[in-house]
Amino acid sequence: MKGILNFMKFSKPQTAVECKKCGAEISASDLSDNLMICPECGAYMRMGAWERLKMIVDEGSFCELDEDLKSSNIIDFPGYDEKLSSAKKASGLSEAVICGTAEVGGNKCAIFVMDSAFMMGSMGTVVGEKITRLFETATTKKLPVVGFITSGGARMQEGILSLMQMAKVSGAVKRHSDGKNLYVAVLTDPTTGGITASFAMLGDIIIAEPKALIGFAGARVIEQTTGEKLPEGFQRAEFLLEHGFIDMIEDRKRLKYTISKVLGMHRK
């Protein structure tokens, strides 16, 4: 369970965490036991990919795929090598997504979990390739896909090749869908940019966590471009539900139950 607490401010490393919402000091283990929800004010904090997997998959059922795929500086972007190594160090992950097969409530599925602690969960060629391969495997094996999404968008440091991953993954989602297989997308805070404009919005069933930021354009960019003041709750999960772009908002503690139920109804 590496990398689960990296995105938070520590008053003492690995022992106590300050809730950014209410300022409460919470012990790291209590917070982890409470699925990264502040016990004082109920604020959701971001979860690491491994912590997320632990919460969702049946114990001992996860089998990781393509863990050896690692990014390199394919367009010689300045500082990218350093950025990659510090992201690895900070997150304890080799990339911004973990993929594999697992069982959720006894239902076999393919699963991918993104992690915002690794370069804001941005998608370069390796993230795109891993998710594409997962959908292809799921298509061949006729498995549903469950995706936990969090990402700032396409990874600038891999230029146009990152942008093209949006088309590549969307193509793999289409093939999976054409095979009459289920894809459940779970949108968590934050899901933005090119990820929203590709596989985040392509789920047969789209679930979001409460108050998760979900949108295409960045709020600041919109304000600067249009000069308009953003409405309260803009681009939050509740806003997307109201406008008809997600199926439901589900509490973190009920996610496993709900996903299991959905998977069960699509059993072949």
């Binding site: 354009a217 471009t225 249009t226 803009f234």
Partner: peptide, 16 residues
């Protein structure tokens, strides 16, 4: 990039 574009699902439209 606009409030109305987000309300009407800019991301969803591109993804589709």
């Amino acid at each position: 990039c606009g409030i109305d574009a987000e309300e009407r699902g800019q991301g969803e439209a591109i993804a589709e």
